[in-house]
Design a protein around this nucleic acid. Structure first.
Length: 104
DNA sequence: ATTTTGACTTAAG
DNA sequence: GCTTAAGCCAAAA
């Protein structure tokens, strides 16, 4: 395990239910504000899928991207809604459901 | 060790 | 609103 992936995984795992974090957010918290892409790559190549709630990670504008499970984005959105995340159409309402990064 | 790629983001057409 | 282009990072080939 590389340290980067450890951090990403840790942060992703810290995202509380009903909240979401952006790739950039994770990158920043991981210590590399510009590594948002790498975050996504790590997620995709992430071996431990159930241990990493990738569905709580969205794009900077709240758009759901990626996700290679069942129905992809549809499943992702369904899970988030089920968890209580506020949605604005097909996107997540970051204004209400964006994770602070420190306070669950 | 070098090259490629990708679940990003922002700016521009 | 959607497609293109460029820029940065880390992992995989």
């Amino acid at each position: 395990m590389t340290s980067f992936r450890q951090r990403i995984h840790a942060l992703t795992d810290q995202i509380p239910t009903g909240k979401v974090a952006t790739y950039q957010q994770l990158a920043i918290l991981a210590g590399s504000p510009q590594a948002s892409r790498a975050v996504g790559v790590c997620m995709r190549t992430n071996p431990n899928v159930p241990a990493t709630p990738c569905h709580r990670v969205v794009a900077s504008d709240g758009s759901l991207t990626g996700y290679s499970a069942s129905e992809g984005l549809l499943t992702k959105r369904a899970m988030l809604m089920k968890e209580g995340v506020e949605f604005k159409g097909l996107k997540v309402d970051l204004g209400l459901s964006k994770w602070d990064g420190t306070q669950p």
